[in-house]
Nucleic acid binder design. Structure first.
Lengths: 224, 224
DNA sequence: CAGCAGCTTATTGTATACAAATAGCATTCG
DNA sequence: CGAATGCTATTTGTATACAATAAGCTGCTG
């Protein structure tokens, strides 16, 4: 994507994710254009993309609003994600190369290291985690699948504060990745898919818990 | 979508589907704008949408080309579609209303009627078939799922001539729909999902067969 | 006071001019 | 002769002006 367009996209997206643009609130193209320092043209491009990604909704007369997710919507997204990632894992099991397996092992070791220290480095954990999943998706070798997963993976980041769950959950992730590695090693697609399903569903429940905490925090902030 | 924009989108899409724009060929915004009788602005919108739907690909320097699907790509799309439709059927089984069930029955009766006559009305069959699946999707009550399915259902229409398969396949569809109706009636999501998976996979094989026939026809036309 | 008509304003859609980037070609230099 | 370089033409990106549409008033009328 080109410079101005990409800037607008990232800017708007991060404003939505950070809560700077409140869920449900209307957003006007011109206002965003000013905020991003570009003209309406690239802003419109971005809005179209964000609409496709369901970050933004439009009413019947084409006015745009920041999407407003209920916990049910989030569960729905996670359910789809679990299904798609399980499918990816299954495909990956029969296609993954030795080199990709080695990289998976490396990232899983690194993400364990990131939290197995006195002052856990959660962003580092998340980065290796992201790359771990990206390798599996690449090994699945389906562009369509990758596109679809793109639509549901970054969705629930709407809460930045609590997104890192707790250390216990991160450790569980590491172990689940380990099991995934064995399933891949045995080329057992069914096993890999099953482990992945559990992995994502556990993440959902951890997330839902963090969500309710976060919501309470925000409420008390508003009350104060 | 607004008038010019929608016109451009439909026009370009139908040109791709009809083969008027050849797979792999480059398409220029200005040329399309002239063809559609609108300016580049709505054409660009349309191209972005079609790119998201994978009808169009862009190279690293943002030039657009008509997507060029291999049979493997099509199978990939059908595989995803089977998974998503099965998921929809499963969800629908526990949510579908009596009224929706009645409408399903009606459409399935109608599509049978459309082909159980001396001169089968295939377009009518396809229309009731489309509505049948649309009702299930609505009963599944997941906007995300609906969006995703939208991305894979209209894909393989690239061949217009042979798309109606043969009557034997259409009859099989009717019977599979019937089985689906019983599964829904029993609220058996697993059963519904299984039937749906088979339904879509059979459609793929019917399609693949039609595809090879179509390809041969086209080749012989070129040769002549 | 409810509801509607017509005006005003806010917002998005479209066209177009211009800027930026890139590809293709020709020319030059090793 | 081949590769690299610079020029030109083509194509896409961005800004902006103007058109179309819809929302929100305001004041009228039953």
């Amino acid at each position: 994507m080109s410079r101005a367009s990409e800037r607008a996209y990232n800017h708007i997206r991060s404003m939505i994710l950070s809560g700077e643009l409140q869920p449900g609130s209307q957003i006007r193209e011109e206002a965003l254009a000013e905020l991003c320092g570009v003209s309406r043209t690239p802003v419109r491009d971005s809005l179209r993309r964000l609409e496709a990604e369901m970050f933004i909704r439009r009413n019947d007369s084409q006015r745009s609003f920041v999407a407003d997710w209920s916990l049910d919507d989030l569960e729905d997204a996670f359910q789809l994600r679990a299904m798609l990632e399980a499918h990816a894992a299954k495909r990956a099991a029969s296609r993954i190369t030795r080199e990709q397996l080695a990289r998976l092992r490396m990232h899983n070791a690194q993400l364990k290291q990131a939290i197995d220290i006195p002052y856990p480095d959660v962003p580092k954990f998340l980065d290796h985690n992201r790359q771990f999943h990206a390798i599996i998706l690449a090994a699945a070798a389906s562009e369509r699948l990758a596109n679809m997963l793109g639509q549901v993976t970054e969705q629930p980041v709407v809460l930045r504060t609590a997104r890192q769950y707790d250390l216990e959950n991160l450790r569980r992730s590491h172990h689940e990745h380990d099991e995934l590695l064995i399933a891949f090693d045995k080329r057992d697609g069914e096993w890999a898919a099953a482990v992945m399903t559990g992995h994502i569903r556990r993440a959902f429940h951890a997330y839902a818990e963090a969500h309710s905490t976060d919501t309470e925090i925000r409420k008390s902030n508003l009350a104060a």
